[in-house]
Design a protein around this nucleic acid. Structure first.
Length: 554
RNA sequence: GCGCCUGUAGCUCAGCUGGAUAGAGCAUCAGACUACGAAUCUGAGGGCCGUAGGUUCGAAUCCUACCAGGCGCACCA
C-alpha cells in the first residue's frame, strides 16, 4: 500500500515538474506513514515539507499543487486532504481495504512473505557458548533473538543459515579437562584443593562419575597431560550434546556447528596471517605479531600471535570470518552479548583488511540479562556453578512464555528477568494474551460449525457489512502486517513483531467484547467469520516467526 | 581516564529511523459474564521524554556538553 502511494505521489511530483509548477526535486527522501490519529487519514506523506526547502515555496502550497496533479488510475483513493504544516493525507477506499481479507485468506501461511531479500545469502551466528557448561538463562536471550531473526529474514526473502561457533581450542577448554580430572581424583578418595580457574558445577562431578563407571580408576596411573586432554574431549563432547538438546527443546536448531579447531587445520590460521603480513596489515614487534586495526579506526592495534607463539582468539576469529565469506554469504550477522562490544572495531577492521565492506558484517548486541529472584539480584557465574540453566527455565516457565519474554524488549535494552514472576505462569505473562486471541477465534469457528454454520467462502462475503470501527481498524492493521515485517527485517529488530501482535490481539479482544460474531443475520455472520479467520491467520503467521505456538485451545 | 549501551507515567517498556494532542502492560480506583472462552473488556487518575544549549517549518528521536546507571578497556575467550 505504501508503495502504491509512493508511486502515485512521485508520479504527481514529476507531472508538476514537467508543467513547470515545481523545480526538479529529489523525491527519494519523502516518507509515507500511518498517522497516530485516524482523523489524519490512513496514510500521510510529508512530501510538501521535504520539497519546501528545495523548491523554496510554502509547504501547504506545494501540497496543494501536488494534490491537484494526483492521478489515481487504480482508483484506490477515497479522498485527500492537506493538513497541519503541509501534510498530504490519504484516505483509502473501503473496497481496497476489504481486498486484504481476500489476500490473507488466499495466501494463508504465505501472507506476509516478502521478497526484499532477493534470495541474498545471509548467515546468522549466535549463542556460540563454549561447551564448558550447560547454557544458562543469559544465553537464552541471544538464542531467541537469533532464532527469530533467522525466521524473519527467511520470511523476508533471504536465504539464511544459522551457525553455532564452538570455541573449543583455547585455555578454557583445558580448564574443563582439568576440572574433570580433579573431580575424578576426588571421587576416588584424594583430597583436592580445587583451583580457582576450574569449573565447580555439579555437571563436572557427573561427568567424572561417568568416566569412573566405564573406565574405573585406570587414569590415576596414566600420564596427567594426556589424561586431561582426553577428559577435555570427553567432557566437551558430552556438554555440547546437552547444549544441543536444550536448544532443541527451546525451539532452536542450528544448520551448522563450526569448530574453532577446523580453522587450524592445514595451517589455516598461520597462512592467513602470513598473507595479511605480506599485504602490510600485520607487523612484528619483538616476537609478537600485531594487526594494524588502528588503520580502520580501532583505538589500538591488536595482538594476533603472542610472544610465546600462540595465536590469540582474535587470530582465529579473523580466519573464521574469512571462512564465512568464502562460503558465499553476502551478509554476515553476529549476535553477541553486549559485554563484548569493545571487540567490534577490531573485527570490522579485520574484514575490511580482507577486502569486505564494514556493512557486510552486522553485529547485534544483546544486553545481558539481569537475573532477579523476587526483586533481588542473583549472582551468576559458570565457574562457581551458581546459575539458573536454560533447562530450568524451560521446565518451569515453558518454551512459549520464555521465548516471548525475551522478545518483549529491544535487544539492546537491559532486561530484568525475575524468576519468581516468570515461573508463576500467571496471566501477567503477555504471551497468553496473544495466544488467547488465537484460541478464542478458533473456539468461535468451532462453535459456528457446531451450530451448523460452515466457514463461508471468503470470496463471496459482503465485506461492506464490516462497518464497525473495530472491524475497519482490524482490517487496516492486518493490511500493515507485511509493512511491519519489512521494517523489522530492515532494522533487524525482532521485537517489533511482538508489539504488533499485542496490539492486534488487543483490538480483537476489544472487538469481541462489543460484538457477536455469530448472529441471526447470516450475511453478517459470514462476513465476520471471514474477518476473524483472517485475524487467526495473521496471528498464527506472526507467532510462527517468533517460534511460539498458536494454540486452538488453552 | 577513554569507549559502547541505557535514561520516557509509581514499576517494566514501546514510540514505525525528524512529524500532527508522547502510548501500552502491570499496579491503584470504579464498573461489565442467564451473551460465540472473564487468561477478556469499559472507564479514571498518573508525564519538564535525565539536565542545559544547538540544528529547522517541526526534536523523545539528530549534534554538543554535563548528570546518573550498566558494561567494556588483556599477549582471556
Amino acid at each position: 500500500m505504501k508503495k502504491k502511494l509512493f508511486d502515485i505521489i512521485s508520479f504527481a511530483v514529476t507531472a508538476c515538474t514537467e508543467k513547470g509548477l515545481l523545480p526538479a526535486v529529489d523525491v527519494s527522501r519523502i516518507e509515507i506513514e500511518v498517522p497516530a490519529n485516524p482523523e489524519h487519514g490512513d496514510y500521510a506523506s510529508n512530501v510538501a515539507m521535504i520539497l519546501a526547502s528545495q523548491a523554496k515555496q510554502n509547504p501547504r502550497k506545494i501540497a496543494q499543487t501536488i494534490q491537484e496533479n494526483l492521478s489515481d488510475p487504480a482508483g484506490i483513493i477515497e479522498k485527500t486532504q492537506i493538513a497541519g504544516p503541509g501534510f498530504l493525507n490519504f484516505f483509502i477506499k473501503d473496497e481496497v481495504w476489504k481486498q486484504v481479507l481476500q489476500n490473507i485468506l488466499d495466501q494463508q501461511d504465505r501472507y506476509g512473505v516478502l521478497d526484499i531479500g532477493g534470495g541474498k545469502k545471509v548467515q546468522v551466528e549466535f549463542v556460540s557458548a563454549n561447551p564448558t557448561g550447560p547454557l544458562h538463562i543469559g544465553h537464552a536471550r541471544g538464542a531467541v533473538v537469533g532464532d527469530v531473526l533467522v525466521n524473519l529474514l527467511q520470511t523476508a526473502g533471504y536465504s539464511v543459515s544459522k551457525e553455532y561457533y564452538i570455541n573449543d581450542a583455547g585455555n578454557q577448554m583445558n580448564n574443563l579437562g582439568k576440572s574433570v580430572w580433579y573431580r575424578y581424583r576426588e571421587a576416588l578418595g584424594e583430597t583436592i584443593e580445587f583451583p580457582e580457574n576450574c569449573y565447580r558445577g555439579d555437571y563436572i562431578k557427573d561427568i567424572s562419575a561417568g568416566i569412573i563407571k566405564t573406565d574405573g580408576n585406570k587414569y590415576l596411573a596414566a600420564n596427567e597431560d594426556e589424561t586431561i586432554s582426553y577428559f577435555n574431549g570427553v567432557a566437551g563432547g558430552l556438554i555440547l550434546e546437552e547444549i544441543k538438546q536444550d536448544l532443541k527443546d527451546f525451539g532452536v536448531v542450528f544448520d551448522q556447528y563450526f569448530s574453532e579447531k577446523e580453522l587450524y587445520k592445514e595451517n589455516g590460521v598461520a597462512d592467513l596471517l602470513a598473507s595479511l603480513q605480506k599485504q602490510g596489515f600485520i607487523y612484528s614487534d619483538e616476537g609478537t605479531l600485531w594487526f594494524k586495526t588502528t588503520s580502520y579506526g580501532d583505538e589500538k592495534d591488536r595482538v594476533v600471535i603472542r610472544k610465546n607463539g600462540d595465536p590469540t582468539y582474535f587470530a582465529a576469529d579473523i580466519a573464521y570470518h574469512r571462512n564465512k565469506f568464502s562460503r558465499g554469504f553476502d551478509i554476515l550477522i553476529d549476535i553477541w552479548g553486549a559485554d563484548h562490544h569493545g571487540y567490534m572495531p577490531r573485527l570490522w577492521a579485520a574484514i575490511q583488511a580482507l577486502g569486505h565492506k564494514k556493512e557486510d558484517l552486522k553485529i547485534i548486541l544483546v544486553q545481558l540479562v539481569n537475573l532477579l529472584r523476587a526483586g533481588e539480584p542473583v549472582a551468576m557465574s559458570t565457574r562457581s556453578g551458581e546459575f539458573v540453566t536454560l533447562r530450568e527455565v524451560l521446565d518451569e516457565v515453558g518454551k512459549d512464555a520464555a521465548r516471548y519474554n525475551f522478545l518483549m524488549r529491544r535487544s539492546d535494552s537491559h532486561l530484568d528477568f525475575d524468576l519468581d514472576v516468570a515461573k508463576k505462569q500467571s496471566n501477567e505473562n503477555p504471551v497468553y494474551y496473544v495466544q488467547y486471541a488465537h484460541a478464542r477465534i478458533s473456539s468461535i469457528i468451532r462453535m459456528a460449525q457446531e451450530r451448523g454454520v460452515a466457514m463461508p467462502a471468503h470470496q463471496k462475503i459482503d465485506a461492506a457489512l464490516l462497518a464497525e470501527p473495530e472491524e475497519k481498524t482490524l482490517i487496516k492493521m492486518m493490511a500493515r502486517y507485511p509493512e511491519i515485517l519489512e521494517g523489522a527485517a530492515k532494522s533487524l529488530e525482532v521485537h517489533r513483531i511482538t508489539f504488533y501482535l499485542n496490539e492486534l490481539a488487543g483490538v480483537f479482544h476489544s472487538y469481541y467484547n462489543k460484538n457477536k460474531v455469530i448472529t441471526d443475520n447470516n450475511d453478517l455472520t459470514a462476513a465476520r467469520l471471514v474477518l476473524i479467520d483472517a485475524i487467526r491467520v495473521v496471528l498464527a503467521n506472526a507467532l510462527k516467526i517468533l517460534g511460539v505456538s498458536a494454540p486452538e485451545k488453552m
